[in-house]
């Protein structure tokens, strides 16, 4: 359902600095590629697949990808419960991979050139488990039994075609991105449903460029 995705912010940044440096540094006649970063926020992407079926998503198109296309490089990232997979390795036919940075989303201005992991049978690029990957599990502390995204942790990834860099930040695991500091959230009876992802991402639409801001 498309109305679930709101394009809250979609902008194209033309990197003047790059152009300027390209012009002044006119040692070659080849034109420097133009950085084109698309930033989007996705709300309440449902990942409730009870029999392990994933919800597939393409960062390049900003759209959910049909389950039937799971064996293609159409999708970049897939969700089921707290597990996130990337299109590569054991997860898909693509060349995608990911790494985790303890840097706030806005401060990740450049994608690293190396250090990306692909999903394997032993471990996923973004490992599951509280504190290991993108979230903490609160256990018996307050609010109890909650899955909360780790602050300032940003996923940097390569898209399925292996040509684009992107960064992604999970904002909420609960329907409606609720305030997690309330009594209502702490109470398991009144807490909104889990397995609904709200996340923000930025993808470099120009192949090979590492700029993400």
């Amino acid at each position: 359902m498309f109305n679930k995705y709101q394009t809250s912010l979609s902008l194209i940044i033309v990197s003047l600095a790059l152009l300027v440096s390209a012009c002044s540094d006119s040692t070659s006649g080849v034109e420097e590629p133009i950085s084109e970063v698309e930033v989007q926020k996705v709300e309440d992407l449902e990942a409730t697949g009870e029999n392990g079926e994933y919800t597939f998503f393409s960062l390049r198109s900003g759209q959910e990808v049909a389950h039937g296309d799971s064996a293609t490089t159409e999708w970049d990232v897939a969700f089921n419960g707290t597990t996130i997979r990337f299109n590569g390795g054991v997860s898909g036919p693509g060349d995608g991979g990911a790494l985790l940075l303890d840097v706030p989303f806005d401060e990740v201005s450049t994608a690293p050139t190396e250090g990306y992991y692909t999903d394997t049978d032993d471990s996923l690029a973004v490992p599951t488990g509280g504190g290991n990957g993108w979230y903490t599990y609160t256990g018996r502390s307050n609010p109890p039994h909650a899955v909360l995204p780790i602050e300032d942790r940003t996923i940097v990834l390569e898209t399925a075609d292996g040509e684009h860099y992107a960064k992604l930040k999970i904002i909420s695991y609960y329907k409606g991105n609720p305030d997690t500091s309330t009594d209502e959230f702490a109470n398991l009876e009144t807490r909104p449903d889990s397995k609904y992802y709200t996340f923000r991402y930025a993808v470099q639409m120009t192949e090979g460029l590492r700029e993400l801001n």
């Binding site: 979230y135 903490t136 599990y137 609160t138 502390s141 307050n142 609010p143 909650a146 899955v147 909360l148 995204p149 780790i150 602050e151 305030d179 997690t180 500091s181 309330t182 959230f185 702490a186």
Partner: peptide, 15 residues
């Protein structure tokens, strides 16, 4: 501090 609303294990100023 009561609710660890961001799950970082300690009390932040808004908690």
């Amino acid at each position: 501090g009561l609710y660890d609303s961001n799950g970082n294990g300690f009390v932040d100023s808004n908690e």
